[in-house]
Design a binder for these strands. Structure first.
Lengths: 142, 142
DNA sequence: GCCGGGATGGGAATCACTCTCAATCTACCG
DNA sequence: CGGTAGATTGAGAGTGATTCCCATCCCGGC
């Protein structure tokens, strides 16, 4: 068992893995495993669902992709290190706003550093009521 | 129908709901629905799993609890507004450090405000390698 | 070209969660 | 105080995502 510690290229570059990587690169947004699977198929490659899950997980482990859980309970993946941003989600209507905040990035790094942690990734999720839903709710509560 | 402070759809304070609320109040940490279910039972109340899920969801909707998705894919719940803190988790050994950061809280509020969102809750998760695991990893890569 | 071990894939298994629907309970009315 | 409407409950089936199993396949080295 050779240890597979090498960052990006540690995994064997099989046709399937390349296809999955390509599918991820093709989108800027978070995609569920199933979506990735579909995308790969539409590119003409045939890859098993199990393989998609496995590969995605391996990549997440290696820090090559970010994982996130959608409210629907699906895990979604996005290639790392590209226009890093967070989401502000309305808990009522699901509306989503993308936000970037260098403030948080800095804070995350500082905190991690303080505790001796390295290679830190972070997930920030803001959930609230968007302006419209707030209004509606107020009207209902009166 | 002059109900003054009851949440929108008028939740009835049934035995089951009170039991669930109590179970939530009893813990400071995030609990999965199943854990809440167990806790309720250990308190001597008999409540159906479906009811737990329904109630938890209703409470989340009403903003009375925070929801969060554990990496394991379970939804976990925590009563709102009590000793709010975040976690710094080691992705290798699972070690966890609790952190508080008023900086993030402020940022979250500011951003939410900026976009007209109200009643904003936030989840922040930092994942990295703790000092020890960093060291081991380095040793292994050589 | 041949070998060894990691990688693959299809389908069954698992797990968290939701739905269905009849029985039950609550609040409130007369 | 009994009656009624409608909210609530719970057991189990259903759903959908993800993982497991294992025989087969392929990559990379020799």
């Amino acid at each position: 068992m050779t240890d597979t510690d090498r960052p990006a290229t540690g995994l064997r570059p099989t046709r399937q893995r390349l296809a999955i990587t390509a599918a991820l690169q093709a989108s800027v947004d978070f995609q569920s495993a199933q979506e990735v699977h579909d995308a790969v198929r539409q590119n003409g490659e045939k890859v098993g669902l199990a393989t998609v899950y496995r590969t995605l997980q391996a990549m997440a482990d290696a820090g090559e992709v970010d994982v996130r859980h959608s409210p629907a309970g699906e895990a979604t993946y996005r290639r790392c290190s590209t226009s890093h941003h967070h989401h502000l989600v309305c808990r009522s209507c699901g509306r989503t706003v993308e936000i970037t905040g260098s403030a948080v990035e800095k804070w995350a790094h500082a905190v991690a550093d303080e505790h001796g942690f390295t290679e830190v990734a972070h997930t920030v999720e803001l959930v609230g009521l968007c302006a419209e839903c707030s209004r509606q709710q107020q009207a209902r509560t009166s």
